[in-house]
Design a protein around this nucleic acid. Structure first.
Lengths: 207, 207
DNA sequence: AGAAAAATACCAACAAATGGCGATTGTTTG
DNA sequence: CAAACAATCGCCATTTGTTGGTATTTTTCT
C-alpha cells in the first residue's frame, strides 16, 4: 500500500485507447496510475531499478502480450508475486494463463466493477504476501527440511541418515513442527506443506 | 468411441452461424455431429432417454449458456463426466468455468486446430473414465472407508471404534489397501485418496 | 559482547504401526 | 457346487513414532 493511501498501478497495454480509457476510469479513485508501458519488457526494465518498497501495488496488463512468449508462464515473468496482477482481457486467451491472475477485467465491465475487481485483487495479493511472510517464518529452514521428508514418507531414522544427524534430533525437530503448526497427523502436515510450498504434489511418492 | 470408428458429437450453441460453421468443419472428419441443440435443457432432455452406451463422445457447448444458471458449476449439469466436454468460446467467460472443460475452442481457431483439440479432449475424457472405472474398483467399499479414516489421521484403534470392528480387522484392511495400491506412506495414500475422490481436501483436518 | 533463537543430542516409557501367519463366515459367480 | 472374494477376528515379534523431559553447541541478532 502506498503512503498516500492510494494504491499505485502500472498499466502494460499496447492499445492506447484501452490504456487511456483505464486512466480515465481510475482517475479520482483510490488507484493512481503511476506509469504505463506498451510491452512487458519495458515494464520489467523500469521495475528492475526500483527499490522493493516502491514497487507498484497493481500491475494491470493485457494477457495477449504473452503471445510473443508462448511457452512461458506468468510466474516466470513475475516470480516474486509482489504486486497484484490483473488481466485486461478483450481477446481470447488460454485459460491456463488467466488462472494465474489475481483478477480479470473484461472489456465490457462497468467502471464500478473495475474498481471493485482491483480492490479484490490487492486484497488477494496482500493475503498472498502475508502467507509468504508469516507461514514461511513459522518454521525454521531445518524444520521445513525435516517436514518435507516426513510428508514424503521417510521414517525418522531415514531422515537422520539423509541429513547426517541423529534420530533424536529429527524427533526434536518433529516435536517443534507439531508444536508450532498445531498439526499432529501426517495428512494434515502434508496439506500444510503443500499449501506453504514446502513440497509439491510431484514430490509425494506413489510407491 | 462409436462403432463406426467415428466420435459422435453433440453441439449446444444458440448461434446458427456458429453451429453451422462447426458442422461444416467437422464434415468428413472422424467427428460426426449427431445432433445440435440451442439450450442445455434441450440437450439434457434428449440425453435422458438415451441408453448409457449411446451417449455422445463429445459435447461441444457455448459456456455463455451457463449465464442463465449463474451460480451452478459445470459438474452439476454433467455430473457423470461420461462425455468429453468442449467449450466453444467467443465471448468473455469466467475462468473458473473454463477450467472444467476438457478443451476450449476459440472463435479464431483454424479447422485443423479444432480437430486436434477435439481429439485431445476425447483422450482426456477416456482417461478420466478409465480412472473412474479402474481405480475405483481396485479397493472394496470397506477398504475405501478405512482409507478415508486413515488419511484423516485416525489411528487404527479409533477407526475400529468408529466402525465397531476390532483393531485387527482395521489392520487387515490396511494391509490389503497397501498391497492393492502399492502405496506404503500416509502421504502417498492421501494423494491416492484425493485423486480417486475417496476424500476431498476439506476432509483433511488442520488440527 | 551478550541475549535469544536454532540446531543438535540423549533418555525413558508408552502408544501405534508393520509384517507374517492363520482362521471363520458369508456372498457372488462361473 | 466349488472357487473366489469380502469382511471379520486373532496372535506375535519387531519396528517406528510420541511425549516430556534435559542439556550442549552454534548462529543470529541487537
Amino acid at each position: 500500500m502506498s503512503v498516500s493511501d492510494q494504491y499505485s498501478v502500472a498499466i502494460i497495454e499496447p492499445s492506447r485507447i484501452i490504456s487511456q480509457g483505464l486512466m480515465a476510469i481510475l482517475h479520482d479513485t483510490d488507484f493512481r496510475v503511476v506509469r504505463q508501458f506498451e510491452t512487458i519488457d519495458d515494464f520489467k526494465q523500469w521495475e528492475a531499478v526500483l527499490p522493493e518498497e516502491k514497487r507498484v501495488d497493481v500491475v494491470l496488463l493485457n494477457p495477449a502480450l504473452f503471445g510473443t512468449h508462448p511457452s512461458q508462464s506468468l510466474n516466470s515473468f513475475f516470480p516474486d508475486a509482489c504486486s497484484s496482477l490483473v488481466a485486461m482481457l478483450y481477446s481470447y486467451t488460454p485459460q491456463e494463463l488467466l488462472l494465474e491472475f489475481d483478477a480479470i477485467i473484461g472489456i465490457h465491465d462497468e467502471p464500478i466493477t473495475i474498481i471493485e475487481k482491483l480492490r479484490d485483487a490487492v486484497t488477494v495479493a496482500s493475503k498472498r504476501l502475508d502467507c509468504q511472510n508469516m507461514d514461511k517464518q513459522e518454521l525454521t529452514k531445518r524444520e521445513m527440511e525435516i517436514l518435507a521428508y516426513v510428508v514424503k514418507g521417510l521414517t525418522n531414522k531415514e531422515i537422520g541418515e539423509k541429513l547426517c544427524i541423529s534420530i533424536h534430533t529429527v524427533i526434536s525437530h518433529r516435536k517443534n513442527i507439531v508444536h508450532k503448526t498445531g498439526i499432529k497427523t501426517v495428512s494434515g502436515l502434508l496439506m500444510y506443506a503443500l499449501f506453504n510450498d514446502i513440497v509439491t504434489v510431484e514430490d509425494i511418492p506413489r510407491e
